Computed example of a mutant assay.
Amino acid sequence: MREINEQAIQLVAEKAQVIRQDIIKMLGEAGSGHTGGSLSAADIVACLYFWEMHIDPARPQWEERDRFVLSKGHAAPVLYAALAEKGFFPKAELARLRKIGSPLQGHPDMRKVSGVEASTGSLGQGISWATGMALAARIDSRDYRVYTLLGDGELEEGLVWEAVMAAGHQRLDQLVAIVDYNGLQIDGPLGEVLSPEPIADKFRAFNWQTLEINGHDYREIMQALSSARQTKGRPTAIVARTIKGRGCSFMENRAEWHGVAPNREQVEEALSELR
């Protein structure tokens, strides 16, 4: 079992800061992309890649590896930044985000990017894919775990709840779904667009262990992931309260930063806050 200590927390915090810096740099260079939801998920993704998951960049197809599926595929920058920092591909590639001929497009492509487990983008499909992976692990008698990260606006998709129902029914305890609950989507506040509340209660109703945490508190994230590992007979949902645009004061809690990239001056301002 992974140990939760100050050294582990410090490492993850440092990696999350690097991931945020790389998100800003690559989006600034690309001139387009999804900033707010990439930044809100950085702490969660850092905990997964630099503390929780059993993965090996030298063996991206290792059969016993844990799997991560970015169900909110538009937040690809946070995934690319983590994969590059982990060593799946050179960090220089990040500067080619969304460029013609680059493998790093606006949504992740498993055929082109080492470490990407699923080509996602159409919301709701990622958790469905992850459910299938977890079921395959059971059928094949393998111990790997499957993690998927959803946006809160994504929960408005009916396909999400079909997968949640199936995973609960199948008691897929190797599956962990994390909701990046920043309360904002591209059109505005979640409650004004189409509220999926009560989120936690819905997961519980479908036989999921459900934990509600601060998605920027590393210890809480780690404790939730540890609880998921110890839980048998049902999947785990982690509803993580986050701040859209986390780390950049002029972006935080502003829906307009959902799908907008920073300009050169904003890049410098953001990086000055993230140093």
Rank of each mutant, 00 (worst) to 15 (best):
Y144P: 15
S226N: 05
H169W: 15
E162C: 01
A136I: 03
N182H: 09
G188F: 04
S141T: 02
M165D: 08
H169Q: 12
G151Y: 09
S227T: 15
A167Y: 06
L159H: 14
L211G: 04
E157H: 06
L159Q: 11
A136S: 13
S226E: 15
E220T: 00
L225Y: 00
S195R: 10
Q209S: 01
E157M: 05
Q185M: 11
G191Q: 13
S195Y: 00
F203L: 06
Y181N: 13
N182P: 11
M133A: 01
L172W: 09
G188V: 05
I186L: 15
D187G: 01
G151F: 01
M165V: 06
Y147C: 06
D217Q: 03
A200H: 04
L190D: 07
V176Y: 13
L155K: 11
G151Q: 03
E154P: 07
K202H: 10
M165P: 03
L211E: 14
S226C: 03
A137E: 14
E197G: 02
R204K: 14
D180F: 00
S195I: 07
E157C: 05
R142S: 06
T210K: 09
R204D: 01
G168P: 12
D180R: 13
A167L: 10
I199V: 13
E212P: 00
L194K: 00
E197I: 01
A228H: 07
L175Y: 10
A177T: 15
I199N: 12
L172A: 02
L155N: 12
R142M: 14
G168S: 08
E154A: 00
H169N: 14
D143G: 03
M133H: 10
E212R: 12
P196C: 08
R142G: 01
A205P: 04
G158Y: 04
L190W: 12
R142D: 01
E212M: 06
I178S: 14
M133V: 00
G153Y: 03
E197P: 00
Q170D: 07
N182E: 14
K202Y: 00
G183E: 15
A224D: 11
R138T: 09
A134Q: 11
E197C: 00
F206N: 08
R138A: 02
A166M: 15
D143S: 02
I213W: 11
Y181A: 07
V179M: 15
E157G: 00
G151K: 02
V146Y: 01
Q223W: 05
V146Q: 09
W208P: 03
G215A: 03
G215E: 13
P189H: 02
E220P: 11
Q223M: 09
N182K: 07
A166L: 14
L135Y: 12
Y147G: 08
P189R: 12
V146S: 09
L150G: 07
E154W: 05
V164R: 13
F206P: 11
Q185H: 10
I221T: 03
S227F: 01
L150T: 04
G183L: 05
A205W: 06
